[in-house]
Amino acid sequence: MPQRHVHSIGGQLTTLIMPAWIPGRYLGIKTVNIAPGNAALGLPALAASYLLYDATTGQPLALMDGNEITSRRTAAASALAASRLAKPDAQTLLVVGSGQVARLLPEAYRAALPGLQQLWLWNRTPATALALAAQLRDQGLPVAAVQDLATAVRQADIVSCATLATAPLIHGEWLQPGSHLDLIGSFTPAMREADESCFQGASLWVDTIEALRKSGDLLAPLASGLLKPEDLRGTLADLCRQPGSGRQHAQERTVFKSVGTALEDLAAAMLVYEQACPKSRCANAPAS
Rank of each mutant, 00 (worst) to 15 (best):
I170W: 00
P60A: 09
D54W: 08
N33D: 15
L169N: 00
M18Q: 13
W21E: 12
T15D: 02
A129M: 12
L80R: 05
R281H: 09
R72G: 01
A250I: 11
L119Q: 05
P177S: 02
T166S: 05
V272P: 01
T163A: 12
W122S: 06
R192C: 02
L63M: 09
C198Y: 05
T261Y: 03
D54S: 11
L227S: 04
D65T: 04
L263G: 01
A283Q: 11
R84T: 01
A35T: 10
L132H: 13
P189S: 14
A268H: 14
T92R: 15
G244H: 13
G185N: 08
A48P: 06
T56V: 13
P168Q: 07
A267S: 06
G58F: 10
A75S: 14
M1V: 02
Q139T: 05
L239F: 13
P19G: 14
L116I: 05
H7M: 14
N33C: 14
D195V: 04
P243N: 12
P286W: 07
L204I: 09
A133N: 09
L227V: 08
R253K: 15
P142W: 08
A134E: 14
L27T: 12
W120V: 04
A156H: 07
G216Y: 09
D54V: 05
A287H: 06
G201F: 03
P177N: 00
L27V: 09
K30M: 12
R84E: 04
L212S: 03
R124A: 13
I170N: 00
R84K: 13
V143W: 02
Q135N: 10
S186V: 11
R84M: 01
R241T: 03
L169V: 03
Q200M: 11
A129N: 08
R73Y: 12
A131K: 02
A194S: 14
S258D: 13
A285V: 01
N123Y: 07
F199G: 00
R192D: 00
P221K: 06
L169D: 07
I170P: 03
A90V: 04
R192V: 08
T70H: 06
G234W: 05
G225F: 11
L236H: 08
T208E: 04
C161S: 14
L16Y: 10
Y50K: 11
T125A: 15
P19E: 14
S98G: 03
A127N: 13
A211V: 07
A47R: 07
Q117R: 10
L183G: 04
I29N: 04
G115W: 04
L239A: 12
C282P: 00
L41R: 15
A90Y: 04
